[in-house]
């Protein structure tokens, strides 16, 4: 089951199985911390949406629907921002396919697809995908308190 470790006052980690039924647990976890960090209701919901989309990508794509692995969600905040890192050992996100112009074109043509990463970028100030040498994929998202 899920495991929440409070590392420091402003540092949180959630390790949770890759099951879509856990998305609400992840959203609630993020929303509570975003509020605590000082974000208003709209911004807190935006942050939870971005994290939901990132975790959905892990569940649907990185693990091809398998539910025997874990997603790790790390959250840190300070006086002007919140930083969320989501990592997994799956096949990685297709971030290169989800540029804004392509998604906008699909939206205009009423086609689905690519919306998740598009929403992550809309909801957060910075979204950076990374794949390091030990096959751990990660996305790091930052939102500033404006």
């Amino acid at each position: 089951m899920s495991e929440v470790n409070k590392v420091s006052n402003k540092d949180f980690i959630l390790k949770i199985p890759t099951q879509s039924t856990n998305l609400k647990i992840i959203r609630d976890f993020i929303t509570d911390i975003a509020r605590k960090a000082g974000f208003d209701e709209t911004a807190s919901c935006d942050i939870a949406l971005a994290v939901d989309e990132a975790c959905t990508n892990v569940i649907k794509h990185a693990y091809r629907g398998g539910d025997d692995k874990e997603i790790t969600v790390k959250v840190r905040y300070d006086s002007d921002k919140i930083i969320i890192s989501i990592s997994d050992t799956g096949k990685g996100f297709k971030s290169e396919l989800e540029d804004e112009a392509a998604v906008q074109k699909r939206l205009n043509n009423l086609q689905r697809g690519g919306l998740g990463i598009f929403l992550m970028k809309k909801a957060m100030d910075e979204v950076v995908f990374d794949k390091d040498s030990d096959l751990m994929n990660s996305v790091k998202m930052t939102k500033y308190l404006h």
Binding site: R27, D52, T56, Q111, R112, G113, L115, L119
Partner: peptide, 19 residues
């Protein structure tokens, strides 16, 4: 209470047929 891109995608995926 909540919608993500998964829900938006369903609407987008069926609108063409309906229109």
């Amino acid at each position: 209470e909540y919608i993500s891109s998964a829900g938006l995608g369903v609407i987008m995926g069926n609108i063409e047929d309906i229109r």
